[in-house]
Lab assay of single mutants.
Amino acid sequence: MAMNGTITTWFKDKGFGFIKDENGDNRYFHVIKVANPDLIKKDAAVTFEPTTNNKGLSAYAVKVVPL
């Protein structure tokens, strides 16, 4: 089920960042999981599918909501 969130941290040079989800949890995401990576920036609103990996909470099918 899709969730909403906000990008809180973005490491462009490393290709990953973190999203604060609607429950207040931080989720890892990688640029290859983003549909529109050219719009990635700190504080951008996103929708995504929540999941977990071996390191904890993460996100896939991430879409940055255009302003």
Rank of each mutant, 00 (worst) to 15 (best):
Leu57Lys: 09
Trp10Ile: 04
Ala45Tyr: 12
Lys33Gly: 14
Lys42Tyr: 06
Glu22Val: 08
Lys20Val: 09
Gly15Leu: 07
Gly15Met: 07
Gly17Ala: 02
Val65Glu: 08
Asn4His: 14
Val31Ala: 08
Asn36Tyr: 05
Asp21Ser: 03
Ala45Pro: 11
Asp13Leu: 11
Lys33Asp: 15
Gly5Glu: 00
Ile19Met: 04
Val34Ile: 04
Val62Thr: 01
Glu22Asn: 07
Thr9Asp: 09
Met3Cys: 07
Trp10Ser: 01
Ala45Asn: 11
Lys20Cys: 13
Phe29Asn: 00
Asp21Val: 02
Ala35Met: 15
Ile32Asp: 15
Ala45Gln: 12
Phe11Arg: 05
Leu57Asp: 04
Lys63Leu: 11
Lys41Glu: 10
Lys63Ser: 08
Asn53Asp: 09
Ile40Met: 05
Val31Phe: 09
Phe29Gly: 00
Tyr28Trp: 11
Thr9Ser: 14
Val62Lys: 00
Val62Ala: 01
Ile40Phe: 05
Ser58Gly: 11
Phe11Gln: 04
Phe11Val: 06
Gly17Lys: 02
Tyr60Trp: 10
Asp13Phe: 10
Met1Val: 13
Val31Thr: 07
Asp38His: 13
Leu57Gly: 04
Gly15Thr: 03
Ala45Met: 12
Lys20His: 11
Val31His: 08
Val31Glu: 07
Ala59Glu: 02
Leu57His: 05
Val46Gln: 01
Thr6Phe: 12
Asp25Arg: 08
Pro37Cys: 05
Asp38Gly: 11
Pro50Gln: 04
Val62Ile: 14
Val65Gly: 06
Trp10Val: 04
Asn36Cys: 07
Phe16Glu: 03
Phe11Met: 06
Asn26Tyr: 15
Thr51Met: 13
Gly56Phe: 09
Ile40Pro: 01
Val31Trp: 10
Asp21Met: 02
Lys33Pro: 03
Leu57Ser: 04
Thr9Glu: 11
Gly56Val: 07
Val62Pro: 01
His30Met: 07
Ala2Thr: 15
Thr8Gln: 09
Tyr28His: 06
Asn4Arg: 14
Ala44Trp: 04
Ile40Arg: 01
Asn23Ser: 06
Lys33Leu: 13
Lys63Thr: 13
Glu22Tyr: 06
Lys55Cys: 13
Gly15Asp: 05
Tyr60Arg: 15
Asp13Pro: 06
Thr6Lys: 11
Val34Met: 05
Leu57Met: 08
Val46Ser: 01
Thr6Leu: 08
Ile7His: 00
Glu22Arg: 06
Thr6Trp: 13
Thr52Gly: 10
Gly15Ala: 06
Asp38Glu: 14
Val65His: 11
Leu57Pro: 07
Gly15Cys: 08
Ile19Ala: 00
Asp38Ala: 12
Ala44Thr: 05
Asp38Val: 09
Asp38Ile: 08
Val65Cys: 10
Leu67Asn: 13
Thr6Tyr: 13
Pro50Val: 04
Leu39Arg: 10
Lys41Arg: 14
Ile32Ala: 15
Glu49Trp: 15
His30Lys: 06
Ile40Cys: 07
Gly17Phe: 02
Asn53Tyr: 08
Ala59Gln: 02
Ala44Lys: 05
Pro66Asp: 12
Ser58His: 06
Val64Ala: 04
Ile32Trp: 12
Val64Lys: 00
Leu39Val: 07
Lys55Arg: 14
Tyr28Ala: 04
Thr52Phe: 12
Ile19Arg: 00
Asp43Ser: 10
Ile7Pro: 00
Lys63Val: 14
Val31Lys: 13
Ile40Asn: 01
Asp43Asn: 14
Asn4Tyr: 12
Glu22Thr: 09
Asp21Ile: 01
His30Phe: 07
Glu49Tyr: 15
Pro50Trp: 04
Trp10Pro: 00
Val31Met: 09
Asp25Asn: 09
Asn26Met: 15
Ala44Asp: 03
Asn53Met: 08
Lys12Ile: 08
Gly56Lys: 08
Asp25Gly: 07
Asp38Gln: 12
Ile40Tyr: 04
Leu67Glu: 13
Gly15Trp: 05
Pro50Thr: 04
Asn53Ser: 13
Phe48Pro: 00
Thr8Asn: 07
Asn54Glu: 13
Thr47Cys: 08
Thr9Gln: 14
Thr6Ser: 06
Met1Trp: 10
His30Asn: 13
Ala44Ile: 07
Thr6Glu: 05
Thr9Cys: 14
Asn53Leu: 08
Phe16His: 04
Pro37Glu: 04
Val34Ala: 06
Ala59Ile: 03
Glu22Leu: 07
Phe11Asn: 08
Lys63Phe: 11
Asn53Val: 07
Phe29Ile: 03
Asp43Ala: 09
Lys20Ser: 07
Met3Ile: 07
Asn4Cys: 13
Thr47Asn: 07
Thr52Ser: 14
Ala44Gly: 05
Asp25Val: 08
Asn54Met: 11
Ile40His: 02
Gly56Trp: 09
Asp43Tyr: 15
Phe11Ser: 05
Gly15Lys: 08
Phe16Ser: 03
Gly17Glu: 00
Lys63Tyr: 13
Phe16Arg: 02
Thr6Gly: 02
Leu57Ile: 05
Thr8Gly: 05
Met1Leu: 12
Glu49Cys: 15
Lys20Met: 11
Asp13Met: 11
Leu39Cys: 13
Asp25Lys: 08
Met1Pro: 12
Gly24Ser: 05
Gly15Ser: 06
Phe11Gly: 01
Val65Trp: 12
Ile19Phe: 03
Val65Met: 12
Lys41Gly: 06
Ala44Glu: 05
Thr8Ala: 09
Asn53His: 09
Ile7Cys: 02
Val34Cys: 11
Gly24Met: 05
Tyr60Ser: 15
Val46Arg: 01
Tyr28Val: 05
Phe29Leu: 03
Val31Cys: 09
Asn36Glu: 06
Asp25Ile: 06
Asn26Asp: 10
Ala35Arg: 11
Leu39Ser: 08
Lys12Ser: 10
Val31Pro: 03
Asn23Phe: 10
Asn54Phe: 10
Gly56Met: 10
Met1Lys: 14
Val65Pro: 02
Asn23His: 11
Lys20Thr: 14
Trp10Thr: 00
Glu49Leu: 15
Ile7Gly: 01
Ile7Tyr: 01
Ala2Met: 13
Lys33Val: 15
Arg27Tyr: 10
Leu67Ala: 14
Phe29Ser: 00
Val34Lys: 03
Ile7Leu: 02
Phe16Thr: 03
Thr47Gln: 09
Leu67Ile: 12
Pro37Asn: 04
Glu22Cys: 10
Trp10Phe: 11
Met1Thr: 15
Tyr28Met: 06
Thr9Phe: 14
Phe11Leu: 06
Lys63Asn: 10
Lys41Ile: 08
Arg27Lys: 00
Gly5Asn: 01
Ile7Ser: 01
Phe29Cys: 02
Thr9Tyr: 14
Arg27Gly: 00
Phe48His: 01
Ile32Arg: 15
Gly24Arg: 04
Asn4Trp: 14
Phe29Glu: 00
Val64Gly: 02
Pro37Lys: 07
Ile32Asn: 15
His30Glu: 11
Gly24Leu: 04
Asn54Trp: 13
Lys33Phe: 15
Met1Ser: 15
Ala35Lys: 14
Asn26Ala: 09
Gly17His: 01
Val62Asp: 01
Leu57Cys: 05
Phe18Asn: 04
Phe18Leu: 05
Pro66Cys: 12
Leu39Gln: 14
Leu39Asn: 07
Tyr28Glu: 03
Lys14Ser: 08
Lys42Glu: 08
Thr47Phe: 07
Val62Cys: 03
Val34Phe: 05
Trp10Ala: 01
Asp21Leu: 03
Lys33Ile: 11
Leu57Glu: 04
Lys55Gly: 09
Ala2Pro: 13
Lys41Thr: 10
Gly15Arg: 07
Thr52Glu: 12
Ser58Lys: 05
Ser58Arg: 05
Phe16Leu: 03
Gly17Gln: 01
Leu67Gln: 13
Ser58Cys: 11
Val64Tyr: 03
Asp13Asn: 12
Val34Ser: 05
Asp21Gly: 04
Thr47Ser: 08
Asp21Gln: 02
Thr47Arg: 09
Thr52Arg: 13
Leu67Phe: 13
Pro50Asp: 02
Val46Trp: 01
Pro50Arg: 03
Lys55Asp: 07
Arg27Pro: 00
Asp43Arg: 11
Val34Gln: 03
Trp10Cys: 03
Thr6Pro: 00
Asn4Ser: 13
His30Trp: 07
Ile40Thr: 03
Val62His: 01
Gly56Tyr: 08
Lys55Pro: 03
Asn53Gln: 07
Glu49Thr: 15
Lys12Thr: 07
Asn36Leu: 04
Ala59Phe: 03
Ala61Gln: 10
Asn54Gly: 12
Pro50Ala: 07
Phe18Asp: 00
Ala35Glu: 13
Thr6Met: 09
Phe48Lys: 00
Ala2Ile: 15
Asn4Leu: 10
Tyr28Gly: 02
Thr47His: 06
Val64His: 02
Lys20Gln: 09
Thr52Lys: 13
Leu57Ala: 05
Asp13Cys: 12
Gly24Lys: 04
Ile40Val: 09
Val46His: 01
Met1Phe: 11
Ser58Glu: 10
His30Arg: 07
Lys55Leu: 11
Lys42Val: 15
Thr9Val: 14
Asn36Asp: 06
Leu39Tyr: 10
Ala35Asp: 11
Val46Met: 02
Lys14Leu: 11
Met3Phe: 07
Val65Ala: 08
Gly5Cys: 03
Val64Gln: 00
Ile32Pro: 04
Val34Leu: 04
Leu39Trp: 10
Ile7Asn: 00
Val34Glu: 03
Val65Asp: 07
Phe11Tyr: 12
Val34Pro: 03
Asp25Glu: 10
Tyr60Gln: 15
Lys12Cys: 10
Trp10Leu: 03
Phe29Arg: 00
Gly56His: 07
Trp10Gly: 00
Ser58Ala: 14
Lys42Cys: 09
Asn23Asp: 06
Ile7Glu: 00
Thr9Ile: 14
Thr47Asp: 03
Ala61Val: 06
Asp43Met: 11
Thr6Asp: 03
Met1Tyr: 12
Tyr28Ile: 07
Ile32Lys: 15
Val65Ile: 13
Thr6Asn: 07
Asn26Val: 14
Met3Arg: 07
Ala61Ile: 05
Leu57Arg: 06
Pro50Met: 04
Thr8His: 09
